[in-house]
Amino acid sequence: MGTICDYLVHDHQRCDELFAHVETNVALKEWRRAEENFRLFSGALDRHIWMEEGILFPTFEKTIRGSGMPLGMLRVEHQRIRAIVNRICDALCRSDPVDFMLHTETFALLMQQHSVKEEDMLYPLLDRILGSHTTEIVCAMREKVESTIQ
């Protein structure tokens, strides 16, 4: 089964790979294909954020008092991520390589900083604190992914 950290780090990598396909498509000026791959990426990212905000964060908040502030900051970052993803989508719809690159650079920076916080601090902490609930948490996250893909 692995840990919560293992599962979510793997999901980060999956989202990164999906976005890399979009970047490749844009570089090749394959705009329609870029839009198709972007939909796959965007759906995966939405599911990832939902797993954190819908399953992981509430479980953590129930377990640890005072955890709302750091998680609140991550939720704000999720809003920023969604906003920049919307700008990337707009650039794709307009087949605008300049806007795409500008927003992609911002997105990459934001995701790098966000992922470090989660992968190096939050996820390992969650594994330590919620370790006895790992199986049910990872199963709930998998069920969410499977139910939205079908």
Rank of each mutant, 00 (worst) to 15 (best):
T24L: 14
N25K: 05
N25Y: 14
A27S: 15
A27D: 14
L28S: 13
L28G: 11
L28I: 04
K29M: 13
K29S: 15
K29D: 14
K29V: 11
K29R: 13
R32G: 14
R32A: 15
R32H: 14
E35Y: 08
E35P: 06
E36G: 09
N37A: 10
N37I: 00
N37E: 14
F38Q: 08
F38L: 08
R39N: 11
L40S: 10
F41K: 08
S42Y: 12
S42L: 12
G43K: 11
G43S: 13
A44W: 04
A44N: 07
D46E: 14
R47F: 01
I49E: 05
I49R: 07
W50C: 06
W50A: 12
M51Y: 03
M51Q: 11
E52D: 09
E52Y: 12
E52L: 10
E53V: 02
E53L: 06
E53N: 12
G54I: 05
I55D: 03
L56T: 00
F57R: 01
T59L: 09
T59E: 14
F60H: 02
F60I: 00
F60C: 07
E61S: 07
E61H: 00
K62G: 10
T63D: 01
T63G: 00
I64G: 03
I64K: 05
R65G: 10
G66R: 03
G66W: 00
G66F: 04
S67G: 10
S67E: 02
G68F: 04
M69E: 13
M69C: 01
M69L: 12
L71I: 03
G72P: 05
G72A: 01
M73F: 10
R75N: 05
V76L: 13
V76W: 01
E77N: 04
Q79V: 07
Q79Y: 05
I81T: 02
R82Y: 00
A83M: 07
I84T: 12
I84Y: 04
V85M: 06
N86A: 15
N86I: 01
C89I: 02
D90R: 08
A91G: 05
A91D: 00
L92P: 04
C93E: 13
C93H: 13
R94M: 02
R94A: 06
